[in-house]
Design a protein around this nucleic acid. Structure first.
Lengths: 256, 256
DNA sequence: CTGATATGGTTCATTATTTGAACCGTTATT
DNA sequence: AATAACGGTTCAAATAATGAACCATATCAG
């Protein structure tokens, strides 16, 4: 792995659950030597991507990341446009709504709206979603480039529950249904007792760049709920796509 | 410079004005060899910190940055808490309000609220503010750790306009005034015709972690405006500090 | 149509940076 | 007082980064 890759994989060790980590901890988890880990941290700190708490000496993600993310967001106002619609969808469905953006070989959860009720599905910001075993992943693939689909189906399709689709043909079939329907349905593919629907958010080239999904406890979800949420998610996704692409209708050809 | 540092300095070449850059451009601006530049970009792309446009082959900041920034923001909800108050301040003053966070040796503009009027001061997200020549910088220093102040005054104090304070004692005096007043005033220190006031946002340890500032065209700004905005900025900053630190009053001792 | 000059991307011997075992000084814990 | 954890540092050895020269392609001017 390149040195740069190592440095970035250090950044990836910070999670919502553990946003601050000590040097030894980081070395252990990354598998790098303590000296190496430290040198990488110093380099990252020197550019503001990591900060060190003056008191505890622990490290955390730095303000420089906010800066870079805001520049990206300004160019590509995904959150800015999508969050209000996600919020609407969350209050309409009274279930958890999350937005994801594609990155490398997974979807990245970039925003979550939790409904104000005790029994709900919990999704964390920053969580990485596999493509074959989530509603978001399936609908993403349904509207993705051919290469991305091939790459996913060629790779290993891990089973997370007994319901996870691990056969390429099954995943492919699920994608076709999603494409025809406009939204995907994933029944406990990633976690037991959770059923989700998702719709694709399209870039100007007509391919998916992210998704919007509704996740709910299966126990209280009827077939009618699924259909209703699916259509609502499609409407929200279409609106987001339109706003992102300046009402460029051509971009939406694939979802029409 | 470490390889990691080089990679990060590539990220820093992307700005609001030029959010997409080609390989040759990046190599030229960074001063690195084209092969080196590409290898770094490949490493960054592999971890989602950079993306490549499929059509133009140009590079831009990637979704992975959004993810990391959101994790940081969840731990440290600076924007989440501060933006609503910045918005209130902007509508109350009808002038540009910006939020900055400290990073390395500068303040980083992480949010901007522009008033809905033609003649206003324009501030860009991601803009880096020097400490000695901006209202934000002065008030930050006024409530910063001794070391940070020393480091700033020891370094070169560049003049951006004829009004910029370039003498350490002058800057120091300006800091003292800001500390006593609660807010800083910067009269055309960074740009001609712009006058700003700023107040410090404090961390739990009582030291500044960022600032909130109001910037206005000097031509239409009276002394009364300055005082009014200064007090409003202090009120906003205090509210943000309180919300960030869970009403921990001890944290606010220095501003009291 | 051609030559000149861009662009993105690749190669591989040379070179310089990264690496990690062993080290130090502190700070809990026993 | 002894132990073990922590953060941080050192320097010869090992490894990864470097960059001049190289393609292939695209664009432009004459």
């Amino acid at each position: 792995m390149s040195t740069v890759g190592k440095a970035i994989s250090l950044l990836e060790l910070f999670t919502l659950a553990e946003p601050e980590l000590g040097l030894s901890d980081l070395a252990r988890r990354s598998g790098f030597d303590k000296a190496t880990t430290r040198r990488l941290l110093v380099a990252l700190t020197g550019h503001g991507l990591v900060e060190q708490d003056a008191a505890t000496r622990h490290y955390r993600l730095g303000a420089g990341l906010s800066r870079l993310a805001r520049i990206r967001e300004a160019r590509f106002p995904f959150l800015q446009t999508a969050v209000p619609l996600a919020r609407d969808l969350a209050s309409a469905t009274a279930e958890t709504v999350h937005l994801s953006e594609f990155g490398i070989d997974r979807l990245v959860t970039v925003h979550v709206e939790h409904p104000a009720r005790a029994n709900r599905v919990n999704v964390d910001i920053g969580q990485l979603l596999p493509l074959h075993s989530t509603a978001s992943g399936i609908v993403y693939l349904a509207f993705a480039r051919e290469e991305a689909v091939k790459a996913c189906l060629a790779g290993p399709l891990d089973a997370f529950t007994t319901h996870t689709l691990t056969e390429p043909v099954a995943v492919s079939h699920s994608m076709t249904e999603a494409r025809e329907r406009g939204y995907s349905i994933c029944d406990q593919g990633l976690e037991e007792g959770v059923i989700s629907v998702a719709a694709a958010i399209l870039a100007a080239d007509g391919f998916a760049l992210g998704t919007i999904a509704v996740a709910a406890p299966k126990a209280r979800t009827t077939a009618a709920d699924i259909a209703e949420r699916g259509l609502a998610a499609v409407a929200a996704a279409r609106e987001i796509s339109m706003r992102l692409n300046g009402d460029n209708l051509k971009a939406l050809r694939r979802q029409a």
